[in-house]
Structure formats: C-alpha cells, structure tokens
Nucleic acid binder design. Structure first.
Lengths: 243, 243
DNA sequence: CGAAAGATTGAGATATTTCAACTGCGGTGG
DNA sequence: CCACCGCAGTTGAAATATCTCAATCTTTCG
C-alpha cells in the first residue's frame, strides 16, 4: 500500500519532470512564437492550412471535431505540455478546432523548423514522437471507455482521467474545478448532459465524490480508489473476466 | 459530378502511389525484417517490450485493446501501408495486441534504426509522421461516429470506411469480403453483434447493400452514395445542422 | 435585481441490448 | 456417406439503459 502510493507519486513526479524538461528543450532549441489565449479563443480551426504545431505552456484546451452534417464532437482534452495540431500533419490541414477553455498560453512552432531542429537535436524528435504516441494511446483508451462502459462508469473514468492529468502536472488531485459544462463532458463521453448530471449525483450520494460548497463544478475526491471501485461496480462483468 | 468522380479517383490513385512510394522508400533506406503471418497470429502483444514498428506489406490486421478488467476492444483496423505499434513509442511497451485477420506480411523496423535512417533520409520521417497523424485523424473520426451516430449509421459508416480503405489501395470497392465476424464489427462499433446483423439486414432490404449468393460476408455495394444517404437518413438532425 | 446560462431531477419515450429460438454451413468421425 | 456438432448469422420479443422533454433550482453577470 505504502509502496504503491510511493511508486505512483514517483510516476507522477517523473511526468512533471518530463514535461518541464520538454518545455525547456523546446525553448532552447527551436524558434517559438508565444501566444496568449483566453477562454473561448481558438488556437486554430478545422480546415485551416497546417503550418505550426502548438505546445501548451499553460491553460486547458479542447479539440472539437465537426462533421460535415453539423455533428460536433469533443475528441480530446489537452493540458500543459501537450501538443496540439498533430492531426494536421498528414493532410496539411488541421483536423479540428482547438479551443481554449481558460486563460492560457501556447507556443507555436513551425513544423518545418521543428524538423530541421530535430535533426540537430534528436531529443526533440523523441519528444514529438512520444507526444503523438501518447495521444494515440489516450484515444484508444477513450474508445475502450466509450464502447465498453455504461454511462456512470464513463463519468467516473473521466474524473479519474482528469485527476491523473493534474497529478502528472504536479497539481492537487483531491480537489479540482472541472472547467467544462455538463454538456461538454457529455459530448466528450458520448452521452447527454442529463446523464452526466445524474451520474455525478449518484457518485455524490455514494460519497465517491463531494461537491464543494461553492458551485457544482468544484469536485472533491476523498480517495481515488473509490472512483475506481465505483467504475467497477457500474461496469457489467464481462464473460472474459469471469474466469 | 464527373469532375467530382474524377477527383475522387485521383485522390485514390495518389494514395496508391503514396503507399507504394513509402514501401519502396523503406526497402531502400532502412533495415527490414520480413515476417509472414496467418489469420489469428499476433504481431505483438500488449505489454510486450517495444522495439520495432511494423509496416503492413499485405494482409489485414486488427488492434485489440485489453482493459485490466477483461474488457476487450478493437481500437483500429489496418491495411497495406499502415504502421503498427505506434502507440508503443511513448511507454516503451505496446499498447494493444496486433492480430492478423488474414494471411499477410509485415515489415519489422527497429525504431532506433528508423530514427538513425530518418536523419539521413528526411522523407522517412515525413512518412512516419504522416502515418501517426493519419491514425490520430482516423481515431477522431471513430470517436465522432461512436458518439454522434445511431447504430445503423455507424454500420453504414463502417462499410464506407472499409470501401474507402480498399479504394486507397487500388482495390475494387463495389464488392468485397468483410474479414470480420459480426461480433468483431460490433465490438469495433460499440454495439452488439445482433445490432450489426439487423443494421445490415435493413440496408439489404433498402438495397443499399446486397449480399452475394455465397455467404453473408461478401458484400456488394451498388453505389457508395446510397450508403452515405442511408447514414444521413439514420442520423438524427442535429440542432446545429438545422440552420 | 432580473435575465440568461448551467445544473438537477422526474417521468415517459425509445434505441439498443439481452435472451432465446432457429437457420445454414463446414468439418469430423462413426 | 451421412449424422452430428459447433460456429456464424438472423430474427423476434421482452428487458433496460439512456434519451427526451419538462419543470425547477442555482449561479453568474450585466
């Protein structure tokens, strides 16, 4: 138990370190254009000509995919140290809107200059590849949740994901403010805002989470394991898991 | 109409070209270990130490993500020219099982050797980045389908995706064999095998698709636009699309 | 303070799943 | 050779998770 907690903490500490190192490396080795954004600003929009990758220096962003028929989907959330715009490389057009959910700063890096620099500084290349690889892994996790978990468990998984993202950035995870509306969360998780609200209410009733006195967007998580076990209890036992 | 069809054909032709060029480039510039696989073989498994990326030279593969609790999820399908194992770069472990669905061949490329070679041959780097970027885009499209489309439309979208994948590889798209069971398709699309079956039956009844005389796995698609309009008719009109 | 936006909650509607029966097909062994 | 079995697929009917619609409440903000 103690060792587990320690190792998790170290895992997070090293993530903090990795992100800090990467940001430092970028500053040192490649031309950067800083850009401050406020809640609601878009860093780039779908269809716009690709030219730069963006690294989140601070703040919090959502990636919104817009289908031809007007269906709108939040396909990703990004925090400090994440790269934005990676899905624009192949097509030379950004694949979604990158929207700031809060005040923050991104560093614009010209893709061509990045490639140049990467030849001189291989660590840059590693950082880029790791960022892409991590996003792929995260996407696959999202699909797993979307396809195999019922609504309640998806919401619980979302909170755990959020807490983990904060932990990896050295922030407190026992209490935090969701910077998304129920509608945005629901969109991200493939359910309605009402379902999100009900799931959160059920979790609060079971004392898996608590709402802080001010606002229903501040969430207190007594212990993360409770979230995990709530997820399990909400999830149906799969045939494979039975033996 | 004619110009549209022409441009689409050109789009596919250039995709064929791109894939052929990439495979040629790999052969010329980086050490490759060929490996033949048969249906059911795994190229690598989740948790296994990462070392190689794999490029599909022929055949067809599914990527299966396995959650801790035994939930199993097909998170991707890959054809000739696709890269496998990209989600293993960041963690130094493969993130899922890569399972051959048919006889085929993959080219194993050591990641460290690839990076070396990429410095001498920047086109290699471009190819790798495009592959990752394309997979990200594809994942986002999947999420959009999973979250915003009803079951019938997801199945139609799946067929359209499959036909498009074949077209990009220069294969006929009016008729093809699904190499997946209803259960596998359902898993990939986040629904039960019965729902897949019903969706296909409805499409057949509406003459959007036809089953060839032998087996219900061979599918004939009279015209792709019918698939698209079936998708639209199955999808609810979103508020945003109304004005 | 009042209006607008966000959130909660209930009740009925509905899409999808679940459970079950049945079909067709391919292999295998008596 | 044919009976039999298992697997894949189809289809129906009942069960259920989630959505939709609507009322109410809270918070934010001009």
């Amino acid at each position: 138990m103690t060792t587990e907690a320690t190792s998790v903490t170290q895992g997070h500490r090293s993530a903090v370190r990795r992100i800090a190192d990467m940001l430092q490396l970028l500053q040192d080795s490649v031309p950067i254009q800083r850009r401050v954004v406020r809640a609601g600003d878009t860093v780039y929009q779908v269809g716009q000509q690709f030219g730069c990758l963006y690294v989140v220096s601070s703040g919090f962003f959502k990636m919104v995919n817009l289908s031809g028929e007007g269906r709108e989907q939040v396909v990703g959330l990004h925090f400090k140290g994440d790269w934005l715009g990676l899905d624009g490389i192949a097509t030379a057009q950004y694949g979604c809107d990158a929207v700031a959910m809060d005040t923050g700063e991104v560093w614009a890096i010209r893709y061509d200059e990045l490639l140049q620099a990467a030849i001189r500084t291989p660590a840059l290349l590693t950082a880029l590849h790791e960022a892409m690889s991590r996003e792929l892994t995260r996407d696959h996790d999202s699909m797993l949740s979307l396809c195999t978990l019922p609504a309640d468990a998806r919401v619980a998984g979302f909170l755990r994901y959020w807490a983990d993202a904060l932990a990896q950035r050295g922030l407190r995870t026992d209490q935090f403010t969701l910077r998304m509306t129920r509608a945005e969360i629901g969109n991200y998780l493939g359910m309605t805002l009402e379902s999100v609200s009900r799931a959160l209410s059920r979790m609060a009733r079971g004392d898996v989470i608590r709402f802080t006195e001010k606002g229903r967007r501040d969430i207190h998580i007594p212990q993360v394991e409770a979230l995990t076990s709530f997820m399990r209890s909400a999830a149906p036992m799969s045939a494979a898991a039975l033996h």
